[in-house]
Design a protein around this nucleic acid. Structure first.
Length: 338
DNA sequence: CCAGAATGTCCAA
DNA sequence: TGGACCTTCTGGT
């Protein structure tokens, strides 16, 4: 379920549920076990999204033994044993510590306190389920690459989060995190994002606008649904070359994405139809099939366009399905006869 | 039950 | 361009 709004929503959820708490970190499925053991018992500071990338920030674990008492009683012993560890584990720990102290003084000379991050990218299948206020933490459902647990305290029930099917789940330094961010285009969901940075790419490119919108180095966070929907809302054919847009058109698309995706963060759904085209306004049945959210064209192949009634079209572009209304989004004619 | 598709991205040929 | 990654859900048998 991951377009940018999902990740921003998830970041907020992780921050409010786990932020400021020492957490148990595990990898039931095993593929993140080594890193999880190193983070286990650390302070989870907060989580943050950049486009579709998620970073969960941890403060380094104080020396072994101190930590164990800070977590929960029962797990303390196990954590202590783990921290004593083998030679290999000790060596890895000291590597981590030296990386940490190196990054302590970042490029800007700031004290980042040796923070480390779990970098998560959900990919097409991934999901991160968070449950708060549970009396018992159940065994994981399916293959959990990463499990976070906030143990119960006398005045608060437990919480947990399970990460399944991600394409990326990696322990990274502040510098590595910064490198990922630097590769991303501006994210409409971030207040500091600069739409002109994206326009620099879009306005020069011969690639279809439908391709550019999905290119995370052009702008970060848009996926197949928002791509299809924002192009419909602006009556732009998805194959139209980016450089044929006017900058005002790009700006309107950007501003629309800010609103639409912001709404997505709040509601957890992708709703893109204007008030006059809602099921209630039009007296049509609501969309029942999947995922929730009212849309104009996404996965509505062959169905009638809510605006003009002609059939929604689809075509594969770069391995992903495009959806558009040929009447509402006429082909761009760059030269006579084409 | 199995095949196929799905809001994603990378890499090799 | 096609496969790999890897999980869940749906629609057809």
């Amino acid at each position: 379920m991951p377009e940018g709004h999902t990740l921003h929503r998830l970041a907020g959820e992780l921050t409010s549920v786990f932020g400021g708490n020492r957490v148990r970190v595990g990898s039931p499925q095993g593929r993140f076990a080594e890193a999880a053991a190193q983070l286990d018992g650390a302070l989870l500071v907060d989580a943050e999204a950049w486009g579709k990338q998620l970073f969960v920030r941890f403060r380094p674990v104080p020396p072994a033994g101190v930590v164990a008492s800070g977590v929960s009683g029962r797990s303390g012993k196990a954590a202590e044993r783990r921290h004593a560890g083998s030679h290999v584990e000790r060596r890895q720990r000291s590597q981590i510590e030296s990386e940490t102290s190196r990054s302590r003084r970042g490029p800007e000379g700031q004290d980042d306190e040796g923070e480390r991050f779990v970098h998560v990218h959900l990919g097409l299948y991934g999901g991160f389920d968070v449950r708060d206020d549970v009396p018992e933490v159940p065994p994981p459902v399916g293959q959990a690459r990463l499990r976070l647990v906030r143990p119960a305290t006398p005045d608060r029930l437990a919480a947990y989060g399970d990460l399944r099917g991600p394409t990326t789940c990696a322990l990274v330094t502040a510098a590595e995190r910064a490198a990922v961010v630097a590769r991303s285009g501006p994210d409409p969901l971030r207040a500091d994002a600069d739409p002109d940075r994206a326009w620099d790419r879009v306005g020069r490119s011969a690639s279809p606008i439908g391709t550019l919108l999905m290119d995370q180095s052009v702008l970060a966070g848009v996926g197949n649904v928002y791509r299809a929907e924002v192009l419909f809302r602006h009556r732009i054919h998805p194959l139209r070359p980016g450089r044929t847009l006017r900058s005002a058109q790009w700006r309107a698309i950007w501003d629309d994405l800010v609103v639409l995706m912001g709404e997505g963060v709040r509601t957890g759904r992708i709703d893109t139809v204007r008030p006059e085209h809602t099921p209630e306004a039009m007296g049509r049945p609501p969309r029942v099939d999947d995922h929730g959210g009212e849309v104009y064209v996404y996965r509505r192949t062959g169905q009638a366009c809510h605006v003009c009634g002609s059939k929604v079209r689809t075509e594969v572009l770069g391995g992903r399905n495009l959806f558009w209304c040929a009447r509402c989004q006429p082909a761009f004619r760059s030269r006579a006869g084409r």
